[in-house]
């Protein structure tokens, strides 16, 4: 049996319902919540601010620091509070992704801290986190060359789907599940994040990247609309 009907009835190229809230953390310079259905990411941005210790300062460009973590009760089997190896890696790949779109040259000697937290998870948390972070950076007024957006693509048996849920991650029939996390810059369409677990041919992966890029364009429109809508209110 090939994977023809998704567990939650979505079309293959359809994300879960996207929810965006801006300015959720008054203390932060910028903040946002981004959700793909039950997967919720919150992000807060502090900075640009003075970087300590001084020897870490770079007179040529600013530093972007990202910390990603999940709340202990965001998953069914409690995660020990505090950072772990998985979170450390996700923090770094998110930092790499965002560094490409943030105008680091515009704030030399300083640092921008991005904090991402997941209160409720149903797969695809790192890509939800990147979307939340991008919104928070924009709200903080951090200079950016362009926006970015992220999504997960799954290959379940031979079928490519968009925005993977936990049940799909655990799919075992046929060729099983391949999980691909992708992020793209909005204008230059560069790949900012690519992580893959599973088994896939080069041709299929190319196709998955195309699907991811197309989906990220749509997500990017929603991110921009949310920011614009708020601009009108202000």
């Amino acid at each position: 049996m090939s994977y023809t009907k998704r567990f939650d009835g979505r079309k293959n190229d359809e994300t879960r319902k996207i929810k965006i809230e801006l300015d959720i953390i008054p203390n932060a310079d910028g903040s946002a919540l981004f959700a793909f259905g039950d997967t919720i990411a919150m992000a807060a941005v502090y900075g640009p601010k003075q970087l300590h210790p001084q020897h870490m300062q770079n007179p040529k460009k600013g530093l972007l620091r990202v910390k990603y973590d999940m709340m202990s009760f965001s998953v069914t089997e409690r995660k020990r509070p505090g950072p772990n190896r998985r979170g450390t890696e996700i923090s770094k790949v998110t930092e790499w992704a965002l560094s490409e779109v943030v105008e680091l040259d515009a704030f030399p000697n300083t640092v921008v801290d991005v904090h991402i937290m997941i209160p409720q998870a149903n797969a695809s948390t790192r890509v939800a986190g990147i979307n939340a972070a991008c919104l928070a950076l924009a709200r903080a007024g951090v200079p950016m060359k362009e926006m970015c957006s992220a999504v997960s693509i799954g290959k379940l048996d031979k079928t490519l789907v968009v925005d993977v849920i936990k049940e799909e991650e655990d799919y075992e029939e046929g060729e099983g599940a391949t999980d691909i996390a992708l992020a793209f810059s909005s204008r230059s369409k560069k790949i900012l994040l690519l992580q893959l677990d599973g088994q896939i041919s080069a041709d299929e992966l190319k196709e998955a990247i195309q699907l991811g890029s197309k989906t990220c364009d749509k997500i990017n429109e929603q991110l921009k609309d949310a920011i614009k809508a708020l601009g009108k209110e202000e």
Binding site: N27, M71, S72, F73, S74
Partner: peptide, 22 residues
């Protein structure tokens, strides 16, 4: 959080916290 046994978010003015029970 649907994955917690119980959970709550509390706002006291601008103070905002989340608590979960596993």
């Amino acid at each position: 959080s649907k994955n917690a046994e119980g959970s709550a978010r509390v706002k006291l003015g601008k103070t905002d916290v989340m608590v979960g029970v596993k």
